[in-house]
Computed example of a mutant assay.
Amino acid sequence: MKFLKKIAIGVRQLLKDENFLYGIHKVENLVSKVLSIALIIVILFSLFDLVMILSIDLIATEATGFFSKTLIEIFGMFLNILIALELLENITAYLRRHIVQVELVVVTALIAVARKIIIFDPKQYDKIDLIALAIASLALSASYWLIRRMNQHK
């Protein structure tokens, strides 16, 4: 019986607001660090993949051109790495200040939409998809402008 009473007191202590928030803070930090490590691994593998593709395409050149893949696909790979770096910046900014920086998130989203527009294949997608990307780009651009303007006034 004393054992159950001790457990109940311990649980009550853990559920106090400050203790509970401290535990959540620790879990958030741990998750952020694991995400950072996983993202670094993804970036390194993506970079290795890009270097290998470029090296193979440049070494094994054909008379028709330098790259067997289209430049659009190669640009897409570059932008994927850039987006991953932006995500890593978002996570490290969170670890530094423990707040989500909306400006960084909007910039990352804008880069992702721009990447999709750059690699857009009109044969594969409908025109409405391009219109949706344009609207998303305009909305994100307007959001970024508003956030920057608000930050400048502070």
Score class of each variant (00 low, 15 high):
75 F>C: 07
75 F>M: 07
75 F>H: 02
76 G>H: 05
76 G>E: 05
76 G>Y: 00
76 G>F: 08
77 M>Q: 10
78 F>C: 14
78 F>T: 02
79 L>Y: 05
79 L>Q: 07
80 N>K: 00
80 N>M: 08
80 N>R: 06
81 I>N: 05
81 I>Q: 03
82 L>H: 03
82 L>Q: 04
83 I>Q: 00
84 A>N: 09
84 A>G: 05
84 A>W: 01
85 L>K: 08
85 L>V: 02
86 E>C: 12
87 L>K: 05
87 L>Q: 05
87 L>S: 14
87 L>R: 09
88 L>Y: 11
88 L>G: 08
89 E>D: 13
89 E>G: 12
90 N>D: 01
90 N>L: 00
91 I>A: 10
91 I>G: 09
92 T>I: 12
92 T>P: 00
93 A>P: 00
93 A>M: 14
93 A>Y: 15
94 Y>F: 15
94 Y>T: 11
94 Y>E: 10
95 L>S: 13
95 L>Y: 09
95 L>R: 15
95 L>P: 12
95 L>N: 13
96 R>T: 14
96 R>W: 14
96 R>I: 14
97 R>N: 14
97 R>W: 11
98 H>M: 12
98 H>C: 10
98 H>F: 13
99 I>E: 15
99 I>Q: 15
99 I>D: 14
99 I>H: 15
99 I>S: 12
100 V>L: 10
102 V>M: 10
102 V>Q: 00
102 V>N: 09
103 E>M: 02
103 E>T: 14
103 E>C: 07
104 L>P: 01
105 V>Y: 03
105 V>L: 13
106 V>M: 01
106 V>S: 02
106 V>H: 01
106 V>Q: 03
106 V>K: 08
107 V>G: 04
109 A>E: 10
109 A>F: 13
110 L>P: 06
112 A>S: 13
112 A>Q: 11
113 V>A: 02
113 V>S: 02
114 A>Q: 04
114 A>Y: 00
114 A>D: 07
115 R>Y: 04
116 K>R: 11
116 K>L: 00
116 K>N: 12
117 I>S: 13
117 I>T: 12
117 I>C: 03
118 I>P: 02
118 I>M: 06
118 I>E: 04
118 I>Y: 02
119 I>L: 06
120 F>Y: 15
120 F>C: 12
121 D>C: 07
121 D>G: 08
121 D>W: 06
122 P>T: 08
122 P>E: 01
122 P>F: 07
122 P>D: 09
